[in-house]
Design a protein around this nucleic acid. Sequence first.
DNA 1: GCGTTAATTAACGATTTTGTTAAGTTATTG
DNA 2: CAATAACTTAACAAAATCGTTAATTAACGC
Lengths: 100, 100
Amino acid sequence: MDGFTALADPTRRQIVELLSTGEKDAGTIASHFPISKPAISRHLANLREGGIVQMRPDAQRRVYSLRTEGLRDVETWLHRYRSTWSEKLDVLETALEEMK
Amino acid sequence: MDGFTALADPTRRQIVELLSTGEKDAGTIASHFPISKPAISRHLANLREGGIVQMRPDAQRRVYSLRTEGLRDVETWLHRYRSTWSEKLDVLETALEEMK
DNA sequence: GCGTTAATTAACGATTTTGTTAAGTTATTG
DNA sequence: CAATAACTTAACAAAATCGTTAATTAACGC
């Protein structure tokens, strides 16, 4: 599962929001949702496969945290196609300015 | 279908890439892919529902183009959770600086 | 109006996703 | 080392997604 697909599910996006306040173990994450632990476990695996979160074992616990790089990759893709022509011209202008 | 889900499919992302070079009608878009026209038509409907593209009728043709605002909404969500603490502190510092 | 062109909607099958409960794994603790 | 705690993996049902072909709608152009 790629990063975009990982972020397509609303529950997984809520997990991202939750982790933005700091790392949390699987049980704590699950306690915030009305679905079963195995379901959350799978969502976490998907987020991990998509490069959106990372996991660190701590005794029996598995501590999850956001993976900034993964989120940035998705953001970079978007930015590339989001920017308007005027913005692209600005970038071009800056580049030309630097060449002089 | 929301914006994130619309962007989860690889074909739909390729359509976004294609439209980044300028608006195109449905037939032209379909000619770039190995799948049927109805399949492309559905992908376009999904992208439209997700606010990623917009459509303008031109006689029998339907001309599609990127909707920058929709892409920016997704990007904004990502940016909110992507930024690292040091970046957030930079923003805070700037804000404090302005208050002085 | 009639045939043609451009595209969407309908009907349907194959595959994937998302959830559930039950069973298995790994580490801690008395 | 037996019992417990924290998760994940397995097996499976329900729902959604994605593709195909056939039928339908809408707009030209003679």
